[in-house]
């Protein structure tokens, strides 16, 4: 067992463990903090896949922005901040059972797939070159259109989120 495998197992265990904790924690604030840990684990996984750029982005976007956003949402909805009762639906075991079966099935499918044993060649330096990725994103023959579309999506989100969350006058009167 190589050092890489050890690290992977450790990181994977942390990720999955904190993920389970995140979906089971009774306090929403705790769940959000567990989520942060789980996302950090995913960032490590990205690093192990030699996608260091996305590891950084993962930390910045998910932990820096999304997780903080969730914590804000928890704090703004007072009942979820104070609620300490059971947080799951009564028939959670049914879901757990179904998902376990699904998981086993997927694992079986993965292991039976011949290409799953393929070994990665050493990554060429150009593949991790951010400039290449950047140029591809703005290349008309590359990914310019999805790139621009995503920028429009972000703008629409910005406007939509503000519009949805803003307190309207009639509601204040009530």
């Amino acid at each position: 067992m190589s050092a890489g495998q050890v690290i992977f197992l450790l990181v994977g265990a942390v990720t999955l463990g904190s993920g389970i904790a995140a979906v089971n924690a009774r306090k929403m604030l705790h769940a959000a903090l567990w989520l942060v840990l789980s996302l950090l684990g995913v960032a490590f996984i990205f690093a192990l896949l030699e996608a260091s750029f996305f590891a950084v982005v993962q930390v910045l976007v998910y932990i820096g922005a999304i997780a903080i956003l969730i914590i804000f949402a928890v704090m703004l909805s007072r009942s979820s901040l104070t609620d300490e009762g059971t947080q799951t639906n009564p028939r959670w075991w049914l879901a757990a059972l179904g998902l376990l079966i699904l998981f086993v099935g997927i694992c079986a499918a993965i292991l039976l797939w011949p290409k799953v044993t393929s070994i990665p060649a050493p990554l060429p330096a150009s593949a991790t070159d951010l400039a290449t990725l950047g140029k591809e994103l703005v290349n008309p023959n590359g990914y310019l259109v999805p790139f621009e579309l995503s920028s429009i999506l972000l703008l629409a989100t910005l406007v939509g989120a503000i519009y949805t969350a803003v307190e309207k006058k009639e509601e204040i009167k009530k």
Partner: peptide, 19 residues
């Protein structure tokens, strides 16, 4: 969530059939 569980069950059945 019940809809989603339904979708999950459907997915599982589809998965089994395809497999």
């Amino acid at each position: 969530q019940q809809y989603m569980a339904g979708a999950l069950a459907g997915l599982a059945i589809l998965f089994i059939i395809l497999y």
